[in-house]
């Protein structure tokens, strides 16, 4: 065996060992995960209330009259015991795992009828809600995580976190109430051209409040540029945006 052949053999061996190693790691990782799936029939009125500890939560509206709940549980696996009572589906991982200090992440992928009232709380992790047209969309992250609310047509929307970005893309309903609050992170709101709302937007540290195409003559800056107050159109919806140490940006859809 010459030197070139020897070198080729060595490289092939290293490559095979590497592939085997990563396959083993992947298999172990999959073995450490548990999956939880449950489907609930939904009536004309349905509400989803989810309290998670850590992990990503994705809620997506669809046009089926059923709620499909999928969860991936990292080790050590959390206890999960959803409850469905008179049109309300409650998943409370905080209560279900009370007294357990070390609980792995739980990542949710939930499909709900588009008219579902959605109320999500989590301690740590991202939250994404899309395609919902109902009375309520609430996303509350106790500490850090991004919030994405896409294609939302709810009359009451609240998104709160401490660290992380908030992005809202949806319609503002007449008489609706919309509240976005963060301590550090950017808040971006993408709303239709003809939106009508009253707004109080406050960014005291950065003073970075940009309305871009949403600018209106009825908007005025207060407090040395730390707050923007005013209205667009008739001002039927009420919009409150507070970002302690980040920027606030409005875009037209």
């Amino acid at each position: 065996m010459n030197l070139v052949q020897h070198s080729r053999l060595a490289r092939t061996t290293v490559a095979i060992v590497g592939v085997v190693f990563f396959l083993c790691i992947g298999t172990l990782s999959v073995a450490a995960q548990k999956r939880f799936t449950r489907t609930y029939p939904a009536g004309s009125s349905v509400r989803l209330k989810l309290l998670n500890r850590t992990g990503t939560v994705t809620v997506e509206g669809w046009d089926r009259a059923e709620v499909r709940l999928e969860a991936t549980l990292e080790s050590p696996a959390a206890n999960i015991a959803p409850q469905s009572l008179s049109g309300e589906i409650v998943v409370n991982l905080v209560r279900d795992n009370e007294g357990r200090g070390d609980v792995g992440e739980v990542n949710f992928a939930i499909r709900v009828p588009f008219y579902t009232l959605v109320d999500i709380e989590t301690k740590i992790g991202n939250v994404s809600v899309s395609n919902i047209s109902s009375g309520l969309v609430r996303a509350h992250i106790s500490s850090e995580g991004d919030i994405q609310l896409l294609n939302i047509g709810a009359s009451n929307v609240a998104a709160e976190n401490v660290m992380g970005n908030i992005f809202f893309d949806g319609e503002l309903q007449d008489g609706g109430i919309y509240r976005f609050s963060s301590v550090k992170g950017d808040i971006a709101l993408r709303i239709p051209f003809n939106s009508s709302f009253r707004v109080v937007a406050t960014a005291p540290s950065t003073r970075d409040i940009a309305f871009y195409q949403c600018a209106s003559p009825d908007l005025s800056l207060l407090g040395d540029g730390r707050r923007m107050v005013g209205k667009c159109g008739a001002g039927s919806a009420s919009l409150s945006v507070t970002n302690q140490r980040g920027a606030i940006k409005f875009f037209r859809r």
Partner: peptide, 23 residues
């Protein structure tokens, strides 16, 4: 309670609390 938390949770909590205290 925090002695029972995993290290990631502790770190995340401290990070967020620090941010709030800075504000």
């Amino acid at each position: 309670r925090r002695t029972q938390w995993d290290s990631q949770t502790r770190a995340a909590f401290d990070r967020n609390l620090r941010e709030i205290d800075d504000s």
